[in-house]
């Protein structure tokens, strides 16, 4: 049995560490998508949190109305969100592509309000329960702490998807198009690549990540129209800390800040809610382009 560390019982320490990792999983999945979207579209996507919520709601609706369970939902919900993303990009974002980024911010902020308003109108704010799949219920006693299976799954799934996304962008041919088009879209198009389609695909894939995160979150938190707006502010702070446009930076910062937040809950709980913003302020002072950002 591990002895108390600095007077903190290991149960509490590891429990909070796990919680930090869980939060970090969501920070990473969401900030990754935001970073990709910003890099390619120069849009600060304020609707990202709302689309995360839509992912969770699609899973819940599939279960309620069609009896479709968690595992199919994990695939279907991101696809539905991606389709919604295609619609948003093709009908709205494409029209403001050449304008000041402020327009994109305002547009997506408005979209987030509309989407959340629609779900609040139909489903209220009380939250809907969504059970974890039977295969992921229960947990394991590791001796120093109790590990709920579902939470372990969330961390693993998020890590795998984040690393998969990183691999797709940094190590594949399609990813090289994406990186190149982020730098010089006109030149990439002059090479014969359909950049507008690539932009749509990028936006769809990035919001699909948010939808995926929403399904992962559904069994842990209640499915609630406001679940995204609570999260997205912290995620923006994570993106600022990691640096806009860096893929690995977004992932590492996401998990790292989740852990920092968890540890703060153990050692100085009063600061847990603001620690990420304190880190953000310090990073902005010392390295304004973010920890992994390019100057």
């Amino acid at each position: 049995m591990i002895q108390d560390l600095l007077g903190i019982p290991p149960q509490a320490l590891f429990g909070q560490l796990l919680l930090g990792l869980i939060n970090g999983s969501f920070y990473a999945l969401l900030s990754l998508g935001l970073a990709v979207i910003f890099g390619m579209l120069h849009v600060i996507n304020f609707a990202h949190g709302a689309l995360y919520m839509v992912g969770a709601f699609v899973a819940w609706l599939l279960m309620i109305h069609l009896g479709i369970g968690y595992w199919p939902a994990l695939l279907i919900a991101p696809l539905v969100v991606a389709a919604f993303g295609v619609l948003i990009e093709r009908t709205m974002l494409v029209r403001i592509a050449k304008m000041d980024p402020l327009y994109g911010l305002l547009l997506t902020f408005g979209l987030a309000l509309v989407i959340e308003g629609v779900f609040r109108h139909f489903y209220g704010v009380s939250g809907q329960p969504y059970p974890p799949p039977p295969s992921l219920q229960g947990g394991t006693n590791l001796g120093f702490m109790f590990l709920p299976t579902y939470r372990a799954w969330v961390v693993v799934a998020s890590l795998v998807v984040c690393l998969g996304t990183w691999y797709a962008i940094e190590r594949t041919k399609l990813g090289s198009y994406l990186r190149a088009a982020t730098e010089k879209p006109q030149l990439v198009q002059a090479m014969g690549i359909n950049v507008p389609a690539l932009v749509t695909l990028t936006f769809a894939a990035a919001v699909a990540l948010a939808g995926f995160a929403g399904v992962l979150a559904a069994p842990m938190y209640q499915v609630n129209p406001l679940m995204g707006s609570n999260l997205i502010i912290v995620v923006f702070a994570v993106v600022v800390i990691g640096g806009m446009g860096s893929i690995l930076g977004a992932v590492i910062t996401g998990f790292g800040l989740g852990i920092v937040e968890g540890l703060t809950k153990v050692f100085y709980p009063e600061a847990a809610n603001i620690v990420i913003f304190v880190v953000m302020a310090i990073v902005l002072l010392v390295k304004p382009q973010g920890l992994f950002g390019k100057a």
């Binding site: 030149l187 002059a190 014969g192």
Partner: peptide
């Protein structure tokens, strides 16, 4: 025609600033 379709007709372009991508290796 749209730029990418023009390029696919068989035109190669060497831009004035050389257009080398910083986020790609030489081989990429």
């Amino acid at each position: 025609l749209r730029t990418d379709r023009i390029a696919r007709k068989g035109i190669g372009y060497v831009p004035e600033d050389r257009g080398i991508f910083a986020s790609l290796t030489v081989e990429e």
